[in-house]
Simulated assay, not measured.
Amino acid sequence: MKQSLRKVLISGGRGLIGMRLSEMLIDAGYEVAHLSRQTSHGHYCSFRWDPATGQIDEGALRYADYVVNLAGASVSDEKWSEERKREILDSRVGGTNLLARELRERDHHVKAFISASAIGIYGDANGRLLDETTPPAPSDDFLATVATQWEQAAHHVQELGIRTVVTRIGIVLSDAGGALPQIARPVKLMAGAALGSGKQYMSWIHIDDLCRLLIQMMEDTDWQGTYNAVTPNPVTNKEFTTTLAEVLHRPLVLPKVPEFGLKLVMGEMSEIVLASQRVSAQKVLQQGFQFEYPELKQALEALYGEE
């Protein structure tokens, strides 16, 4: 049991990952507070901030032993207009820069800064195995640009001498939100199908494994630098859809959803489901992390086994 006086400040604490991480930290004996644009929510203490205007409660970082930086507008909630793209970028980079500024200018006792990024940094790489040394995709790839600038902002914290861990997160599997319920809905309605060619790789992680990984990164001083947060077993989109249908006990009756149809409906956002990213988990395994759900079927059964 961890001492209750160890305090974790989470930006993006109201999001899918932030809420589950908060629960698991409380269970482990930590105190948790959120950075929020609202004054209060639920049973978590919260400090106000507004990355768009550069404002933050002066007490926020004085509170924290650890900071977990997850804040960012969802990439999959709506079509990518120019305004939405700006919001996606600014919410990540602006928030991280604001935290870096506060850590530079105020007294604090923050031991570690754990900052989210995304495997979108690698772009569409077909079947190539991608690891942390793989360079980012070219700047015409929107998600790669966002992740690159997000990571550069986190490096400002590292330059202050604070132990900084950048976590490139894959597709997070949760039945409470994110990509999985959207993928599962047509399968449940017996209208499931592979997307595009179906050959594109999906690198994924069960939400509980991700939160356990974030906590280990926070607690263990050996973790430093950049890591992929994905399981060791990426699958193709066709394998993913087939396994999900099997777990949900539904047939797959439709042919593949063609790429042009997805682009028509989703616009540029279709690159989320059409890009192929076969991402290596070797570095986190070498660091000693053990996955509870390394295999896709096992992860999906843990989420949908009762259905």
Rank of each mutant, 00 (worst) to 15 (best):
M1T: 14
G12P: 02
G13M: 01
G13F: 01
R14I: 01
M19K: 14
D27I: 01
V32W: 12
L35V: 09
S36T: 07
S40C: 04
Y44W: 12
R48T: 07
A52M: 09
G54F: 11
A60L: 13
Y63F: 15
Y66I: 10
D77P: 05
E78C: 14
E78M: 13
W80R: 09
E82I: 09
E87M: 06
L89Y: 14
R92A: 04
G95Y: 04
G95Q: 06
N97L: 15
L98T: 06
L99F: 03
R101G: 05
E102N: 10
L103T: 12
R104H: 13
E105G: 03
D107C: 10
D107K: 14
H108G: 08
V110Y: 13
K111C: 03
A112W: 13
D124G: 06
D131F: 01
P138F: 04
F142Y: 06
L143K: 04
L143D: 03
V146F: 08
V146K: 07
A147S: 12
Q149P: 03
E151I: 07
A154Q: 13
H156N: 14
V157K: 09
L160K: 13
R163A: 08
V166A: 05
V166E: 04
R168V: 01
I171Q: 02
S174G: 08
S174R: 00
G178L: 01
A179H: 05
L180W: 03
A191H: 07
A191K: 15
A193F: 05
S197T: 15
Q200G: 02
Y201I: 00
I205V: 11
I205W: 00
I207C: 02
D208F: 01
L210Q: 01
C211Y: 01
R212W: 00
R212A: 12
L213G: 07
L214Q: 04
I215E: 04
G225S: 12
Y227K: 04
A229I: 02
V230F: 00
T236R: 04
N237F: 06
T241Y: 05
T241H: 07
L244P: 05
V247C: 11
L248D: 10
V253C: 04
M266A: 15
M269V: 06
S270A: 15
S270M: 13
A275K: 02
A281S: 06
V284C: 04
V284W: 06
E292R: 14
K297Q: 15
A299Y: 00
E307P: 04
